[in-house]
């Protein structure tokens, strides 16, 4: 049984280490959302994008990120709240999703948050868009922060899907 006890020790300590989560928080209108900091590659100011034909309205187009073509998703439009009219003050957060890099267009990046995994709540059933696009909800400074499910955000970009 000695080996079993040893195993328990290890898992307990690894849980403690992995229990907190750092998020990059950004805002769309009044609402705050977050993504895990390790997925974020770069934050850059909006500088226009080349529109892609035959894609849904939340695909803003593609930009040149040091020689690589990266698609930009309009998160506001993805939530069905209308297309953003971006200015120079809008921000593109470039993230890696799987083996791809994508950018999401948001109003502003606000903060880096450290939250405990235990504090993540499930998204209440209801609006299908919310449950589809959010992984969970955490509370920070008595504000609600929605955790973005990046895979869900970038899927269904084509016209026919």
């Amino acid at each position: 049984m000695e080996s079993l006890a040893f195993k328990d020790d290890v898992s307990a300590s690894s849980i403690a280490a992995a229990n907190s989560l750092q998020l990059i928080a950004f805002s769309i209108g009044e609402q705050t959302y977050g993504v895990e900091i390790t997925t974020v590659r770069e934050i850059r100011a909006w500088n226009g994008a080349t529109p892609l034909p035959n894609t849904r309205e939340f695909v803003r187009g593609v930009i040149n990120l040091r020689g690589t073509i990266v698609p930009i998703f309009d998160l506001r439009a993805r939530f069905g709240e209308g297309v953003t009219s971006p200015t120079k003050n809008h921000v593109v957060v470039v993230m890696s999703v799987g083996d791809k890099w994508v950018g999401i267009l948001v109003d502003a990046v606000s903060d880096i948050l450290t939250v405990s995994k235990d504090d993540i709540h499930n998204v209440p059933e209801g609006n299908s868009i919310d449950t589809e696009l959010l992984n969970g909800i955490v509370t920070h400074d008595s504000r609600m922060v929605g955790l973005i499910d990046l895979h869900a955000v970038v899927s269904g970009a084509k016209m026919d899907s």
Partner: peptide, 21 residues
């Protein structure tokens, strides 16, 4: 980083840094 798009064979980067399809 994205997916293939009907009618578009790829992209390229122009002298001004913008992407052209």
């Amino acid at each position: 980083n994205f997916q293939s798009i009907e009618g578009i064979a790829g992209g390229t980067i122009l002298g001004d840094g913008n992407v052209a399809l």
